[in-house]
Structure formats: structure tokens, C-alpha cells
Write a protein that binds this DNA or RNA. Structure first.
Length: 465
RNA sequence: GCGCCUCUAGCUCAAUUGGCAGAGCGUCGGACUCUUAAUCCGUAGGUUCUGGGUUCAAGUCCCAGGGGGCGUACCA
């Protein structure tokens, strides 16, 4: 009979912390109960050893036939069975801290055989499909997801300490907006209304700043109907935040401080191993404009005033597939992405993006044709995207209309005009700095993981046939 | 989407040139009172991803399909 409840008094880690230093062969007189899965078993006639694993780690079970009730049944437990065990904490003569099995109860039997106790699961597909097994047998897997939880929790606390409030905005959008991506579509039957799953919460969050909530953030699951890769899962988590009265320089300071804080909280240092190299996340991070960085990597000085044909030729030279609709700004961005982005290792704030490719960012206060936008590039990949927000409703309308033209010309990722958002701007949005940061990619950086599937518990896969 | 790789017992992996589908762990049965991936003896376990083809003979070669991985493209 499986009990309806069981109350562990300690975890494996608690026992090691509290009693790890006792003498070999000694007993503590302390009784504890633990619960978990039996991962190893060594039966030796009238004495049996087991290895119990719980969320914190492993503890040996010491079961002499004279002490352990229903000893034969205990020895017959299967690898993978869940058990609750109570007894005295002791250390064997060989020096292994153990719990003497004075009481035990089966909490769930493993009716399917557990993977090889030594090799675990090597097939990545099985690890993703059967995470409930992977978490037991792949130590790194459990560690990454525990760290993911800590990263999210620490980030919340850090933001709340700075007077940000967490909000929830709609996942169903009548108009997809706030980013360039193809949305998923769905339908509400009672309203007979087509809806889009959000590709970004951006436009709703800025409505809230206009609504008098000067510091807001959302841990937003967003959905993009795109290809799947090492860095892309169709649903992923984006932290977006908006801070009234701030500009993109303030947001740069916020990002580098937050990421450094997380690194130190998790690892005690801002120098982290990543992909076999070292990543230095210590603030301050380098700031450099997109044009500077392109010139640094390619030796080629570019600007928006260059002859379009000349820019196209340079783009082609760098293997950009040039399309007729590309203006100078888009060409410069494409050249940057082909030549420069993946070459950057330690964090860099790449600043001052062309206006043509930044329809929600405010005009640069000094550089015509550019915006006050930046992306943080870390280990050659985009970590976040941020800007001094465009607050002028008339200018925003023009930018939306340019986007709508692209959409009409067949660009499936272009934006459409959002009249209600424009109305909010018409009521007045103060100067605001905004940020979108990919939580999955941040977790990858902070846990030395190379594929997004290893930081998403249940990554999108084709269904099993 | 395109290219390359991969799929054999529950798990980890073998199988020579195309020549009887195997081992370890786990399961089941037995021995064993300080083991550490315990050890020892024994047992069962297979649509070799699927469907065709070549061949006396296919896990192996060919074609088509499916799953997955990696790269690339898309994804600012």
C-alpha cells in the first residue's frame, strides 16, 4: 500500500552538511527521514547498501537484516523506485555517511527500467523527450534548471529592489507587434476573432508607462513561428523592462550591472568559462557604434550617405543576399551581421543602429539617420536589444507606415500600424528607456551551455510517431 | 528549406569483405554482514526506425519515407 503522504525531515545534502565530518564507523544518535529514488543497490547477503538520490544529491542507505524491517523486500527494490527511509545517521567503517534503514516505505515503483546507472542517457532526443528521466541521470541537466530558476528569481529581486513592478500583459494580440517575426495564429470562437500569439510584449508595456507605471517589467513567454536551431526555440522567455525618464545609456548601465550581479551570485566571479574559453562579464562593458565595429573588423568605413550601389557592392562582397528593398541602413546592418557580430567575444554594447531597421527606437540626438539603440553581443551572439524609446506619435506613425509598406511588399516579418498604441503615445509617453533580454540565452551564458534545448525543460520537437 | 551525419535489447555499445544478431548494466532466479558502477553463478529479453530493391545470403549495399543531431539559411 502506497501511503498518501510522507514527510522527509532532511535532504541528502542536509545530512552531508550536518554530519559529514563524523568519525568513520560512528553513529550520531540522530534520526532523520529522507525521500527520493533508489539509484544504486548493493545487496550482500544479510547486509544491503543503497544509494538514494533526492533533489539535493545522494546519500547511502545502510540496511543490516537485523535492523531493516522486511529486509528481503527492501533488497528486492528496483533501481528507480521511490522510497522514503527513516533511521539513524551514521558513517560506515569505510567512511561513507549513511542513513541506517530502520523504517522504509515504497512511495512509487519504477515499472520501466531506468537507464544505465553509469552511462545514463546519451541520446539527446531521449533526454529532451523524457526529461523526467534525464533530470535524474544527467547531473548537469538538473543543475542547469536549478540555476535557471535562481537566475529568474535573482533578476526579479534585483529589479524589484530598483522599484520595478512585475506586470502581465496579453499573450493573445489582435495585432502582432513589438518585433520582427512571423507570429503563430489562433482563433477565439465566441468572439469569432483571429488572434496572434505575442512575438513581444513591448507595445503593451509602453502603454503601461504612458499609464503612469514608470518602471515595469514582464517575464514574457513569447512565440515566434520560425526555424528551430541551437539558439532558437519557437517559444522562449524574454525579460522586457521599461524605465521612464531614462535613455539607452541608463539601460546599458542597468544591463551590465544586472548580468555581473547574476554571474557573481551564481559563480562568485564575473569571469566565467564558456565554450572552452573565458568570458569576462565584469562591468563596465565596452561601448562601440556599429560603424566603428564594422571598420575595426573589415577595415571598411561605411556611412549612410554612401552611394547605394557602392554599399550594395560591399554587401555582396561579404556574401549578403542583397534585396531591392534594402536601403542603406538595412545594408549596413546586414554587413555588420555577416562580418562582425560573431567575432565579438567579451561583452560589447553595439550602439547606434540605422533608423531604417529600428522602427520603435528614438532618433539619435546627434547622428541623423541613426537611432539610440543598442544590442549587447556576448560570445558572438545577441543577448539583448534596447533603446531610447520612440515617444513621438507622429514619427511613430510614419515608421509604422514604412513597415506596412514592407509588409504589403511581402515581408512577412514587418510590423503593421497599431492605432491604439499610437493613441497611447498621443496621450503622452515620457522619455523612456526599454530593454528586451533573452532569458534562455542569458541562462546559456551563465551555465556554460551551447544549445537552447538544454535550458528549456521541454523544447519543441516533432511528436513521437 | 538545403547539406552532412545518425538510428541495433529498457540503457550504454559491439557485430571483420555482405556470411548463425552479441556484451556490459538493468530485469528475473541463486550465493554473499562494510559495499561504493560491489562481486560471483544462472535466466529471460530483438519488427537491427519503416517500406521497397539487389543478392544464395542484408544490421551491413541501393531507393523512398520517418525521427534525431550538427552545419547552413530564415530569425534585426
Amino acid at each position: 500500500m502506497i501511503p498518501y503522504r510522507f514527510e522527509p525531515t532532511a535532504t541528502a545534502a542536509d545530512l552531508h552538511d550536518q554530519h559529514g565530518s563524523i568519525e568513520d564507523g560512528s553513529e550520531t544518535g540522530k534520526k532523520e527521514t529522507v525521500a527520493g529514488r533508489l539509484m544504486l543497490r548493493r545487496v550482500q547477503g544479510k547486509l544491503a547498501f543503497g544509494t538514494l538520490q533526492d533533489q539535493s544529491g545522494r546519500i547511502q542507505l545502510f540496511a543490516p537484516s537485523k535492523v531493516t524491517p522486511e529486509f528481503d523486500e527492501f533488497c528486492a527494490l528496483n533501481i528507480g523506485d521511490w522510497v522514503g527511509v527513516g533511521g539513524e545517521v551514521m558513517k560506515t567503517r569505510r567512511g561513507e555517511l549513511s542513513l541506517k534503514v530502520e523504517q522504509w516505505t515504497l512511495l512509487a515503483s519504477a515499472q520501466r527500467p531506468f537507464p544505465d546507472k553509469f552511462h545514463g542517457i546519451s541520446d539527446q532526443e531521449t533526454r529532451y523527450r523524457q526529461r523526467y528521466v534525464d533530470l535524474w541521470v544527467t547531473p548537469k541537466s538538473r543543475e542547469v534548471f536549478i540555476n535557471r530558476s535562481r537566475i529568474v528569481s535573482l533578476t526579479r529581486r534585483w529589479l524589484e529592489d530598483r522599484d520595478f513592478i512585475e506586470v502581465e500583459t496579453p499573450v493573445f494580440h489582435p495585432i502582432p507587434g513589438g518585433g520582427f517575426a512571423e507570429p503563430f495564429t489562433t482563433h477565439h470562437n465566441a468572439l469569432d476573432l483571429d488572434l496572434f500569439l505575442r512575438i513581444a510584449p513591448e507595445l503593451y508595456l509602453k502603454r503601461l508607462v504612458a499609464g503612469g507605471l514608470p518602471r515595469v517589467f514582464e517575464m514574457a513567454r513569447v512565440f515566434r513561428n520560425e526555424g528551430i536551431s541551437n539558439r532558437h526555440n519557437p517559444e522562449f522567455t524574454m525579460l522586457e523592462l521599461y524605465q521612464a525618464y531614462a535613455d539607452y545609456n541608463d539601460i546599458m548601465a542597468l544591463v551590465e550591472q544586472l548580468v555581473e550581479f547574476l554571474a557573481i551570485e551564481l559563480h562568485g566571479t564575473a569571469q566565467l568559462p564558456y565554450a572552452g574559453k573565458t568570458l569576462n562579464l565584469a562591468a563596465p562593458w565596452r561601448r562601440a557604434s556599429m560603424l566603428e565595429l564594422i571598420e575595426e573588423k573589415t577595415g571598411q568605413a561605411l556611412d549612410l550617405e554612401m552611394d547605394l550601389e557602392e554599399l550594395r557592392a560591399i554587401a555582396r562582397k561579404h556574401h549578403v543576399e542583397v534585396q531591392d528593398s534594402y536601403g542603406p541602413g538595412k545594408l549596413i546592418l546586414e554587413i555588420y551581421e555577416k562580418t562582425t557580430e560573431s567575432e565579438l567575444w567579451d561583452p560589447v554594447f553595439v550602439t547606434d543602429y540605422p533608423k531604417e531597421v529600428s522602427p520603435l527606437a528614438r532618433d539619435h540626438r546627434e547622428l541623423p539617420g541613426f537611432t539610440e539603440r543598442f544590442e549587447a553581443i556576448v560570445a558572438g551572439r545577441e543577448l539583448c536589444n534596447a533603446f531610447s524609446e520612440l515617444i513621438d506619435p507622429a514619427e511613430q506613425r510614419l515608421r509604422f507606415e514604412d513597415q506596412a509598406k514592407l509588409k504589403a511588399a511581402g515581408d512577412r516579418e514587418a510590423m503593421v500600424v497599431d492605432e491604439d498604441y499610437l493613441r497611447a503615445l498621443e496621450y503622452g509617453l515620457p522619455p523612456t528607456g526599454g530593454l528586451g533580454i533573452g532569458i534562455d540565452r542569458l541562462v546559456m551564458l551563465l551555465t556554460d551551455v551551447q544549445t537552447i534545448r538544454d535550458v528549456v525543460l521541454f523544447p519543441t520537437l516533432r511528436p513521437e510517431s
